[in-house]
Design a binder for these strands. Structure first.
Lengths: 222, 222
DNA sequence: GTTTTATTATACGGATGCGTTCATTAATGT
DNA sequence: ACATTAATGAACGCATCCGTATAATAAAAC
């Protein structure tokens, strides 16, 4: 992807490229501007010109880094997914009782999903998946599947520690995360503007707690 | 909405309107064509001209019935929601054991949600909600909230019949439907093309059954 | 200075599409 | 026949925007 540094095969041992060097910082700035436009007003409504303007960059520069508008969109999605990966990898659930750990996981998950940017990202991404299925898989691998693995792993550890008794931890993880999202997930995606209340979802605490209750009532080892 | 029949206040007792009558069938045809375009390729990608062509109608006729493109979209959404209401009202869950009834409900729900048209409808609707929150509420009232009420009602009846013991049936309904959708809901929205397998979701049966199992393990009255 | 490359500003060709206008034709009544 | 309204077809003004091209400027090495 970045083989522009070794410009010519016949070049001498001098690694330095000739002429004005590429401003590497600009790519990230462009991607950030693209993220802002694409996931706030959508792919079709966004224009390369406005993205370039927001990035403080010429339109031609954008085209020099990204072949086409769709390529820029795909790159922006990839970038967001990379950010998501990082955010989800820090999420090492701390100690406490199994109930506390599960509730903590659930509340973290809700807080993560109910963010305004996340809602908009999901919305605009879902539409473009129809036109470009790869970006959908990119997101699934970076977000949901990763979260699911993390929860499954948490359950596995609890099973090994003798706290829970579960045959199929992956199935159990799917059930728990499904309950945590619940009907509220639809309200999140189709309901009135999200970012009006400070708390992402006022009923989240109750929902997560009762979900964990129901979960533990069956799986707790006692 | 249809006060064009009583054209003039000063008109005589003759109810019949003057001149060529409006072809009332055309509105439905236009809405159907609009549905096809809007929910397959999206609002921005759809053009009034192509919708009119698909409907076998002049572009001007479309503008005569619907003031603007956005109004046409909103009307198409309303129409789809009306269809959804009808489809969901027929869903009188038949008899059988409580387990059978819940599994039946779950499988019907999955079959309904996993349809290709439903997936695309959700996708394209969710994006436009950002620009027009009303249509989101229209959908929520016609679909998810209605489904939730139906399930809650089913649970209420089972509680009254002594089959289940539940404090908060609405919360319980939310948990059950959440488990039924599970992680697969995300695969549905962001995964590879849906309509390749005949069965909507190959793991649906297992997921629904285990969800009902977990549900009944806590709430069954025995 | 010169050379080389990156970047900008500007303009262009080509296409699309909304919403409107106008003249014409079609379908009803009287 | 006539009057009246619906609907069509075609064109228009206006705007947006992708992707490209061109001339000028900026930043580095020599």
């Amino acid at each position: 992807m970045s083989d522009k540094t070794s410009a010519s095969i016949k070049s001498t041992a001098s690694n330095k490229a000739l002429g004005r060097p590429v401003d590497t910082a600009k790519s990230a700035i462009i991607l950030d501007a693209a993220r802002h436009e694409f996931f706030n007003i959508g792919f079709a409504q966004s224009s390369i010109e406005s993205i370039a303007a927001r990035a403080g960059v010429s339109k031609v520069t954008v085209y020099n880094r990204f072949k086409t508008k769709e390529a820029l969109f795909a790159a922006a999605v990839g970038n967001e997914c990379a950010v998501m990966r990082k955010a989800l990898s820090v999420e090492a659930t701390a100690g406490g009782s199994i109930r506390e750990r599960l509730v903590h996981f659930g509340m973290e998950m809700v807080a993560f999903l109910w963010r305004d940017e996340m809602v908009r990202f999901e919305r605009h991404l879902a539409v473009e998946v129809e036109h470009n299925p790869e970006i959908g898989l990119l997101f699934l691998d970076a977000g949901p599947r990763r979260l699911h693995q993390a929860l499954s792993h948490l359950l596995d550890e609890a099973v090994e520690a003798g706290e829970l008794q579960i045959d199929d931890t992956e199935q159990a993880a799917e059930h728990l995360s499904g309950m945590i999202k619940g009907l509220a997930d639809l309200e999140r995606r189709f309901g009135a503007n999200i970012s009006q209340a400070k708390i992402p979802d006022p009923k989240a605490k109750k929902r997560v707690n009762s979900a964990v209750d129901l979960f533990l009532k069956s799986y707790r080892n006692d």
